[in-house]
Design a protein around this nucleic acid. Structure first.
Lengths: 200, 200, 200, 200
DNA sequence: GATGAATGAGGGTTCATTCAT
DNA sequence: CATGAATGAACCCTCATTCAT
């Protein structure tokens, strides 16, 4: 009699896991990897240490999961923006602007992706690389299928530069006191300008 | 037997401090801030914990000092490159290429600057900001004094994008296995191309 | 639909309990008390934590049960051997040899009895004592009823020495790499020799 | 100027280490390996956790050190007793009696040696084996050099039986309530009788 | 000035046990 | 009856920093 209610339980489990992820994302985003402790995450998720370790193998594991979740989200954002146009440069412009705006609107997630994900363990480095690689691939594909529109440059390196440009300008924007910085939308446009120019 | 504070002693002090800084730079570059311990630095510098705390207020302090030292060095590298030409775009191209090549040749320092310096304490964040700000200022000055040569864009943001592009592509290059990556010089040129194009 | 407590169910219960005991014996024998976890036992018995606690009050309880079960078995082995002869020294020789051989053939059980059962909780210590006491009693009875055949020694202490001699030599044999140790049968004989000599 | 007073400091260090060892021995002897915690040892030694880990790599390490120290002591006791006679059987009798009496007088150490040292980590098992091996070797040497005095038996196994007999009878004696047990000296003699008889 | 032994708060993690389903 | 998710106390251990020598 292997008990019933598997649906309900599965839903609960999923909810619990998500609640840990959410708490972890906020804390990692706000304090960084090393200054966020498992007890802090547990407290914010209104759960217990033991429970935490049922859902994640260890602290590194939550971070990786948060990073991956966020990777999925920004990939989707970028792809959606991409498909609003059929003209390659417009596609890239839209993608860059959306990425910037999305991250500006979700600063915790942004900080995890941009500031916290480097220099940690090899495994986390690997997760970061995988996320970036997907963006770089997308870009390369776009550039390659319209290759006459683009400078004859190494597309891989160009893509990497673009990502760096977006992240660094976003980082600067996030660090600036909200009262003194221009609206995200206008910065996003300028950043898109920069990159589109570099590619054409 | 009251000593006089001889020059010799002052020189010794300075040498000791430098030896700490060198050890710290290598270790921070190789293992990151959190995985480098004060005992590790002390051992590599052939000194003692007590001595360490005579030269630096705490661990954060060495990191800041190492970061600043490195900031000075790359600023000098960039300025030297800058002055080899009088034509603004050539200046910027030279600066970007030199920066890339210098950091590629000094991976420990590069890693400190690029990967390790974000997401730590506010104070370190501040040091990083200060270093970048000087580069951004230089760039802005160049662009401003030849403003008819440049796109009518926000020079601050362009400069930030440029820095991000250099760092991210360098990061990628540093992470790639040495056997599989193109020579630093050719990547440096492509990165310079990207940024020069973006600015013109 | 009120169930009746059928025989089938009772049999099931018993089977389940035995399956826990078997799993526990193997694991305790292989890893020791502290390095065996309840989840491990539960997994090996293809059951669940909750079920486990229906059959045993706690972890110590399974260990005690396993120890007792094993105590019964070796007592039987020893008694059977004992009854193959009517001559006291032969009885004891047979008992020692059988005990050695039985434990050598069941190393998990042997390890539980010999290595794991001391130094744990008072209760487990008590169970071990009870098992040994029965062997000691048997021996004492044999010696007493043929008291003219034995040295005028304290039979209790002699019995204890005998048990210690068997266990320690067995322990040594179990720890030796199987490829380098003599066959169990020949060691068993030597051990029996030693003890028989000591008693005559 | 690599500071003076190295002697005084070294003495202090040694004293501190010994104090940890003493505390650990008592606690391990009284509660066993697993139920003794590092905080307990630290408290009993009037020191601090950090200090503890300056002298021992980990908990297993203190246990091994305590075991080894005790191994040295009992070896010395046995050797001293051994040398009080030149006749092999008397030597062995003296050795067994002294060993029993020494351990009976130092119950904490005895318990570590007898009850606690098995079934723990491979490393500790190894230490225990090494200690026993030295005793077994001594015995074997004695028996071998007077081989005509001894039964034609495997001396290695006989030695192991002897050790087992001593330990198990001692264990039983230690467990018995002090008010109900015979004096150590008389038990020691009976145990010696048993073993000497077994060897002659 | 220089040393390194000493400190102890606080980290990540495990696991016996319970109880809602 | 059976299940396994949830709990949280308690473990071992690290390391930045201090201070007697």
């Amino acid at each position: 009699m292997p008990y019933r209610t598997t649906e309900k339980m599965a839903a609960r489990k999923d909810a619990r896991r998500k609640s840990f992820l959410k708490a972890a994302t906020q804390l990692f985003g706000a304090h960084g990897y090393h200054d966020t402790t498992v007890p802090m995450i547990v407290a914010k998720a209104h759960s217990s240490t033991g429970s935490f370790y049922m859902y994640f193998r260890n602290k590194e594991d939550v971070f990786a999961a948060a990073l991956e979740a966020m990777g999925e989200r920004i990939l989707k954002v970028v792809q959606d923006a991409h498909s609003t146009s059929s003209e390659p440069l417009s596609q890239i412009r839209a993608a860059v602007e959306s990425l910037f705006l999305f991250l500006a609107a979700n600063p915790h997630e942004a900080r995890i992706m941009i500031v916290q994900s480097s220099g940690l363990s090899p495994r986390l480095e690997q997760v970061r690389r995988a996320i970036l690689a997907r963006h770089v691939d997308e870009l390369q594909k776009t550039m390659h299928s319209h290759r006459h529109d683009f400078t004859r440059t190494n597309h891989g390196i160009a893509a990497r530069c673009l990502v760096g440009a977006v992240f660094e300008s976003l980082y600067d924007w996030l660090e600036s006191p909200p009262s003194k910085r221009p609206p995200a939308a206008s910065v996003a446009r300028l950043v898109a300008d920069f990159n589109v120019r570099a590619l054409s």
